[in-house]
Nucleic acid binder design. Sequence first.
RNA 1: GGGGGAAUGUCCCGAGCGGCAAAGGGGGCGGACUGUAAAUCCGCUGGCUAAGCCUUCGCAGGUUCGAGUCCUGCUUCCCCCA
Length: 419
Amino acid sequence: MTDFKPTSDFLAVLQERGFIHQCSDMSGLDALAREGKAVGYIGFDCTAPSLHVGSLVQIMMLHWLQQTGNKAIALMGGGTTMVGDPSGRDETRRILTVEDIQSNKRGIFSVFSRFLNFGDGPRDAITIDNAEWLTTLNWIEMLRDVGRHFSVNRMLSMDSVRMRLERDQEMSFIEFNYMILQAYDFTVLARRLGCNLQMGGSDQWGNIVNGIDLGRRMGTHQLYAVTTPLITTASGAKMGKTAAGAVWLNADQMPPYGYWQFWRNTEDADVARFLKLFTTLPMGEIARLMALQGAEINAAKIMLATEATALLHGREAAEAAAETARKTFEEGTLAADLPTIVVSGAEIAAGLGLLSAFVKAGIVASTGEARRQIKSGGLRLNDALVTDERAALVAGDFNADGIAKLSMGKKKHVLLKRA
RNA sequence: GGGGGAAUGUCCCGAGCGGCAAAGGGGGCGGACUGUAAAUCCGCUGGCUAAGCCUUCGCAGGUUCGAGUCCUGCUUCCCCCA
């Protein structure tokens, strides 16, 4: 894959930034993209109310497709989600209700407008829901037009199916059909919108290639596939899982400050790779940051955090998060932007125990955990180590603005605001 | 349809002669060292009004002073035979 020298901006960018894992035909796709004639889509499941960073590579790929003068389509899997993709899954997926899928779809879509410019113009990105054509399919027609092109022998040999069978894990007929629907999507998009490229994670390779085959048999123009590598951290962990759970893209589930922190805490070994994948900084700038050594790498991490946050939440929110972090970590002063919990004055007057205060702030899950953390010296009130688990908050703990800072460890800080 | 297994700490994996808040991992959290990194070392990893009390081993009963452990029924999953 690295021998190929793309002449199109699109593939050149993808290649130099490390997006390409597999491609069905680099030179064919390159020729299209050079003319601005690549019309690419990526399908997104509507299984959760928000996408998380695991999908960010894909979103960035669509972003670059549009930025390099091609057409990007964000396909919402309103229809396929009703079926459930077995890829990479050990267990049968939970079947979601139609209402859940609809509300998930809305949550997911809100993220795309940050990365793509939608509209009616030829260069504008569009979004479409495959429920539009999948839900009205006629079973017999489908079998005759599409089903006959699929070999069950081959379907059984696909990774997603084979692994289930080998482990004697249940796979329902509904899931078995998923790959047919995804392949069909590709041909529908090809006919309706002139789509000629499907992108996705490496686990989607089989499904995408199936679509290319189906397209050929059903007489569409030539279709292409590009997949991204599976993004893991240098330590081998899956991207996007933190203590608090998944790193969501929607602000109501992961505020900008938390999102910024996620990137700020990137391992050294990942910084260069992530800068290329998750920011739009020019390669020259990235090269400069990559040259940093030792503690200086922190500057690159701050850059990564701010740029990645700016893409998702806007420049202003990103700068605010960076400033909050700077005050909190470098100056050790109070930054108003930290997560804040409001408590009533009455509650404090009644003698709010410190243990409960930490629970209330969401820093620990129970007073028991708070006690344990105190024993191992992990809790601080206004930067002073908490040693007495029987202590209660007093008026003097709040500053002139009625704020007290609760911290656990070096990174977790929550402000308690007296109402 | 017949026969045989399995389900354990609400993150996961997994031991568990009738005395068990239940071995051991992984993961996670905190501490030390650092650079808000990695690696390493140490501690913690049911709840509470906490020298006590309460709730946990698929579900419901039963035997027993005492049940994760024994018995009965049920649920779900797996294997073999048909």
